[in-house]
Design a protein around this nucleic acid. Sequence first.
DNA 1: CGGTGGACCTGCTGGC
DNA 2: TGCCAGCAGGTCCACC
Length: 273
Amino acid sequence: MPELPEVETICRGLAPLLIGQKISGVGHSEKKLRMPLPVDFQGKITGKRIINISRRAKYIQIVLEDEIVMVVHLGMSGKLIAYPAPPIRLKHDHVWMQLDNGGELVFNDPRRFGLVAITDASALPRHALFAHLGIEPLSAEYDGDFLYKQSRGKKTPLKHWLMDARVMVGVGNIYASESLFRAQLSPEKPAGSLNKPEAKRLAQAVKAILEAAIASGGSTLRDYVGAHGDAGYFQHHFVVYGKEGKPCEACGHSIKRIIQSGRSTFYCTQCQH
DNA sequence: CGGTGGACCTGCTGGC
DNA sequence: TGCCAGCAGGTCCACC
């Protein structure tokens, strides 16, 4: 479901609602998520105060007192919502945490590709979920030179390469297509065939798309909502994603949909090479 | 090692 | 109206 801009939006929305609150009670379903909940999940977080909220890749990190970090990944369909008062239990609610201001933080995920984990802050970088993650695309180190070097020798199509979290994190199916259109690069072009100007264009395009999406509060397609349960609106700015058969806004040529690694890719065969 | 394809889930939509 | 194929914003793992 959510890519970097959606996760970032959720973190920014949750921070003022959660920081300083104490988790006074915890409940959970018995359904298996991508990973089982930690042993003694309730015991590990009950009574802890929330110190900070941050994002790494598509993971939400909720830092608790005593150097404990609760990690939440939303998978394809997850939501993490802070309610001002205890809500009615919904189908697919998997974890709910009462806060000492009377509110409740709820993780709901119909498809259960998401997860909730607990780790020590000091162990976080070496945690299996984080150890092999690539660069943050909004960091200063992410630039044309980086992409050029990383892509040498790679035959992988650009679209798939952009979504490889071992190279760079946060770019998913929507923003990969949108970024490649902006960079005027074909999703089928082998990553290793990028020249330096193309790599620079791609780095700038990815940053620009992600930043614009964050500024719009992310994209709401089916069911993504932010921390307050509200929708983003970057979907209205999609240029190619979901636009199969529609005219390219640059040249008027019909937008094409292809399948790459089992996922839909949208692009303009006239503008992108 | 690199690349592909499937697995993990539920829910919604569109075509018949 | 009902049914079913196809599709969905992610990640991991087995296999060639």
